[in-house]
Write a protein that binds this DNA or RNA. Structure first.
Length: 539
DNA sequence: AGGGTATGATCCC
DNA sequence: TGGGATCCCTACCC
């Protein structure tokens, strides 16, 4: 027999159904009482819903009443952001907290469809076809401000892709003269037609865990190195497709970064979350342990040291690394900084990627390093299942303004939800190119541009893709989605049961009808290589 | 085909 | 201050 106090502690439980007339009241101890069951076990049987799912019903109506008014007010504030926006976010959080407290007064169980994000009724978040509908009660997923959803985010629709110049009218005329004189010697951004935007070849399930970093060989143009979450090192000659190797015993966990030894391009330095730096011979795969920050093994997370950033100074023969206790602060960043890269030629600019969904450019010539000279809102949310996004400079762009970064948020491309790889002109914030491939439906957080060729390598989950610029003739046609056939080859050399067909604009309607996110590039197959060059099957 | 799950920054008490 | 809950546009395996 339950103690007497239990009854008084339980809040009132109400069951609601899709139809308003069918509403069951449940006794206070959470069990259906006979006289209140609404007659009919069928109705009661539907009440197998966890109280957690059922919460938030109480305020749903009240919220929907206030929502229209609130929406108007909030829309009126769309233009304002930054500091004011963040305080809006705070007050929104306060309100949510208060609502949460009110909810605890009683529990409603609802059989109505509820939003998977806020558990409220009257709307549903999630994919409708290939378009994601946000929960209207949450701040914008892209810019993190309140008052609008991602769909209507001013940063999403802006031609300059959400640029916030941090420095406004702060220069005097001398600054402009100085800049103009200096800028005459600075080349313009590289033309868009050399941006690699067509998959040339790929390796599927090359690694057994997701890709964490990529590096092109400094002298051998067709060799790409890849690191994964397991600490393995992959070497792939993408010109020969089949020539690939995975060394499994370099590190015991995440291989975070790698750099070639400038004195000997047959060896590569790697840093890992296991706290070690290794110098590995690419021929033998034998690692030479240079440093171990955890020589005494595991003594809890507070003592474990992990190595992330890595660079090599050839003049002094030094390897520089950054660990999880290290500091490198410029830090007007609201969140964790995923990466920071010096510009490739002069090193005068720094490109950072922060988890607050913003890319920042810090210019040491035309600005100071106290504040970023530009902030660009860009969707690269943190997700624990993805490798962190890192915006990187194009090493071939002499203007030091072109950057590449994968996009988290999806866009509806002819009925297919795709995550483009964005090329951004950081001097203006304009989106120079959004690279997509209809068959790659997964996110590409790792992207590396070739130091000399117009080639890009992308890591998406466990797969690696090599991109090259589209043929000119294809560009003239002006079709973003081209018709092609793609073959996936089994590990045993047999062809897969099902051929994945590319699609053109004409047949995209098939995908619009009840389209859900299609499966990716056959990741679940024992496939190893694909080739997409205009229907030619090289395998 | 849909549910389970790996697993990390951040929030909150 | 620290640990548990939360986030909830992943990818893929069973």
């Amino acid at each position: 027999m339950p103690p007497q106090t239990r009854r008084s502690r339980f809040p009132r439980v109400v069951i609601e159904r899709e139809s308003e007339s069918e509403s069951d009241r449940v006794s206070e101890d959470g069990l259906l009482s006979e006289d209140e069951d609404g007659g009919g076990g069928g109705g009661g049987g539907g009440g197998v819903i966890s109280p957690l799912e059922a919460e938030a019903e109480a305020e749903a109506e009240a919220e929907s009443e206030s929502e229209s008014g609130a929406a108007e007010n909030e829309n009126g504030r769309l233009g304002r952001r930054n500091k004011e926006g963040w305080s809006e976010l705070d007050s929104w959080k306060e309100k949510e907290k208060e609502k949460e407290k009110e909810k605890k007064a009683h529990i409603n169980i609802s059989l109505k469809k509820v939003c998977k994000v806020c558990k409220g009724t009257g709307h549903e978040a999630g994919f409708k076809g290939a378009t994601y509908i946000d929960c209207p009660k949450k701040p914008c997923f892209l810019c993190k401000m309140t008052g609008h959803t991602t769909m209507t985010c001013p940063h999403r629709v802006a031609t300059e892709h959400g640029v916030v110049p941090a420095r406004k009218n702060s220069r005097n005329s001398l600054d402009y003269v100085f800049e103009r004189q200096l800028r005459t010697g600075i080349p313009t951004i590289k033309p868009a037609f050399v941006i690699p935007d067509q998959v040339d070849c790929a390796i599927i399930r090359f690694h057994s865990r997701r890709i964490t970093c990529l590096e092109f060989h400094p002298t051998n143009n067709h060799v790409l190195l890849s690191g994964d979450k397991k600490g393995q090192l992959g070497i792939w000659d993408y010109a020969k497709i089949h020539e690939k190797t995975v060394y499994g015993s370099i590190h015991s966990c995440i291989l975070n970064n790698m750099k070639f030894n400038p004195a000997n391009d047959g060896t590569v330095y790697t840093s890992s979350s296991d706290g070690t730096i290794s110098c590995t011979d690419l021929e033998t795969g034998l690692p030479n342990l240079l440093m171990d920050l955890n020589p005494d093994g595991w003594h809890g997370p507070s003592n474990w040291r992990m190595l992330y950033g890595l660079d090599v100074n050839s003049e002094k023969g030094l390897v520089i690394v950054a660990d999880n206790f290290g500091y490198l602060y410029l830090m007007a960043h609201g969140r964790v900084v995923n990466s920071a890269y010096f510009s490739p030629f002069t090193g005068s600019k720094i490109l950072t990627t922060s988890q607050d969904n913003r890319i920042r450019i810090w210019d040491s010539i035309f600005g100071d390093l106290e504040s970023p000279s530009r902030e660009i809102v860009h969707s690269h949310n943190f997700n624990r299942h993805l490798t962190c996004f890192r915006a990187e400079w194009d090493p071939k762009d002499f203007s030091e303004s072109l950057a590449v970064i994968g996009r988290y948020i999806s866009e509806n491309y002819n009925g297919v939800a795709l995550h483009p790889i964005d090329f951004i002109d950081t001097s203006t914030g304009q989106l120079v190119a959004e690279v997509i491939e209809p068959n790659i439906t997964t996110i590409c957080p790792v992207n590396k541009l070739h130091p000399r060729d117009d080639i890009m390598a992308s890591g998406s989950s466990r797969s690696i893709f090599i991109w090259r610029p589209k043929e000119k003739s294809e560009r003239v046609q002006g079709k973003d989605v081209m018709k092609f056939k793609m073959s996936v080859c089994g590990k045993d050399g047999k062809k897969p049961k099902k051929k994945l067909e590319g699609r053109s604009d004409e047949d995209s309607d098939d995908y619009n009808s009840e389209c859900k996110k299609p499966r990716g590039l056959g990741h679940n197959k024992q496939s190893i290589c694909v080739n997409l060059t205009n229907g030619k099957n090289l395998i």
